[in-house]
């Protein structure tokens, strides 16, 4: 009996282990719900463990929707060409990403396009971006 209880206890812990795979994209975001958002930066949260870009998106009917775009860690973003001051308030950006599973106005960012056309990858944790096959100019590995 005692052996059975402990076997059960450790099996439970082992079963919970895969949940530890870091920052489960699939737990929060839906790879089948890609979104493309054009909006004005209202705030850039340069924070661990994930940065957040806040944008106001104007909808066709004129209303404004507030979105939060999740990026990688500050370290990840720095290595992709960002710094803390890269996104000034008021900058209009286009974000490609994947919407939150719960349907809220949150997305996991794949990449963003700056007004001059320059593109930056957002260090998405989920789709394997930037090597998720969506970029035709990218060399295949």
């Amino acid at each position: 009996m005692r052996t059975a209880i402990f076997a059960l206890y450790f099996l439970t812990i082992i079963a919970a282990a895969p949940l530890r795979a870091h920052h489960a994209f699939a737990a929060e975001f839906d790879a089948n719900k890609p979104v493309r958002l054009e909006g004005t930066v209202t705030r850039m949260e340069w924070i661990n463990p994930h940065a957040w870009i806040h944008i106001d998106v104007k909808k066709p009917d004129g209303t404004v929707e507030k979105w939060m775009i999740e990026g990688g860690t500050p370290n990840t973003l720095l290595r992709r060409g960002f710094n803390k001051n890269s996104l000034q308030m008021g900058t209009v950006i286009i974000v490609d990403g994947y919407q939150a599973k719960d349907g809220s106005s949150k997305a996991n960012g794949r990449d963003l396009t700056l007004p001059g056309g320059k593109k930056l990858f957002l260090g998405s944790s989920g789709t394997g971006a930037p090597r998720d096959g969506r970029d035709p100019t990218e060399s295949k590995r």
């Binding site: 340069w46 924070i47 661990n48 463990p49 860690t73 500050p74 370290n75 803390k84």
Partner: peptide, 13 residues
């Protein structure tokens, strides 16, 4: 400094 850090936060984690 901690939440903006490049290395310290992941090391503390």
């Amino acid at each position: 400094a901690l939440h903006e850090s490049l290395w310290v936060y992941p090391i503390v984690e």
